[in-house]
Design a protein around this nucleic acid. Sequence first.
DNA 1: GGCGCTCTTTGCGCCGGCGCAACTCCATCG
DNA 2: CGATGGAGTTGCGCCGGCGCAAAGAGCGCC
Lengths: 232, 232
Amino acid sequence: MAAIDRTTVAAFPLFAGMPAADLDEMLREARSAHHPKNTAVFEQGEPADAFFVLVHGHVRASKATPDGQQIVVRYVSPGEIFGVAPAIALTHYPATATAVVDSVVLAWPSSAWPRFVAHHPTMATSALQTVGSRLQEAHTRVMEMTTEQVERRVAHALLRLAKQSGRKTAEGIEIDFPISRQDVAEMTGTTLHTVSRILSAWEQRGLVSGGRQRIALLDPHKLFGIAEGKDG
Amino acid sequence: MAAIDRTTVAAFPLFAGMPAADLDEMLREARSAHHPKNTAVFEQGEPADAFFVLVHGHVRASKATPDGQQIVVRYVSPGEIFGVAPAIALTHYPATATAVVDSVVLAWPSSAWPRFVAHHPTMATSALQTVGSRLQEAHTRVMEMTTEQVERRVAHALLRLAKQSGRKTAEGIEIDFPISRQDVAEMTGTTLHTVSRILSAWEQRGLVSGGRQRIALLDPHKLFGIAEGKDG
DNA sequence: GGCGCTCTTTGCGCCGGCGCAACTCCATCG
DNA sequence: CGATGGAGTTGCGCCGGCGCAAAGAGCGCC
């Protein structure tokens, strides 16, 4: 019983070019769920019995090492498919998905995936492209991690977040969901201490404006310079 | 004019379950090419006008930063598809593929991909799983890079190489293609100096045996211990 | 409205691993 | 068979950023 209207999701790339009737049919099979802020959509290691599309909100995908360290894999924006473990033949989720604000997701049982793909070959193509672009992202990240200084990595991460989920305000571009220094540290492979120091320094130079779980970019252009290693 | 026989490639996962006639048809469209040691199959930034399957040999996929630093993305083993840029909607190759030994590849023009997928939906599924597992690899690597010491990362890298392309010898498991300290450094995000120091130390402890572009694991079990942080 | 918790800031000291440089060792090629 | 250059080894010194610690600030909950 999805309370989600077709018009809400028709524009999502996954459903691009799908006839309205087919889309309605798919939505009928979907379960829609609300996840309050800071609750998990699924946890790393659980059986992968569903895949998801984010309708409203923001979801953080994170991965934990055996000894408990966390890294943030990515932030999911509305319209994106996530938890694609079933599509890539994983039986268990390789990461944890947590709603960072109140969020609404559509969920389909894993068993539906092969059937959907058979009926709508474009879904396979679309999924392939999504996973492909995430692979690109991941490789870019590996490159940054191995070749760039921490400060540049943090700049890159903030610019990427702003691009993906930035909201224009009077003073600049604010990241549209709560994000802590710890989160940024886990995205960039450093410690919250170092992130805090870097952001403090930038704040003094007027490049960013901080706050509790809040980051706004005041001077994206200068930040881009830092990200590219052309610091002044 | 592919000089490649069906039986050579029938076992490759990409073609799993494909009728012999269809496979023959696909092979007819393929161009087979020999790439001598240390020559490029394709270069980063070139238009992605083909995708490939490795038949014999070993191919290194590497990526360069704008300022010329290299990282090794992965080593391709026989039977694997690579250069999948066309399948994930990239117009240019994001990395360079270099034969590290004399190698034989099959190549299909990019334009063939959509047609193949339409005729053989299992190819899309297979490609999705391949890209998915590479995504997993990449995330694992990001995790290792951010949470593990250099020595552990090197141990992990060697174990992975041995698993993927190890050849049992009298003394242990030898990596089946020429690989330099520099290559290992570019896989693990460190410098060849550090890799050299680490391997020298291990050689003295009898864990590995080195040589010019040669690495053999004499005591994989102890190496695994190091990789997991349980060093003695 | 006040308490407590989480998030953040900042100081201090240390060290793993990088940068640099010099030297050795082989493999290949003419 | 000697020359050449790529690959590997190793010493030395430095420093970016982590670990630890402790205090300060803002938010949410009761």
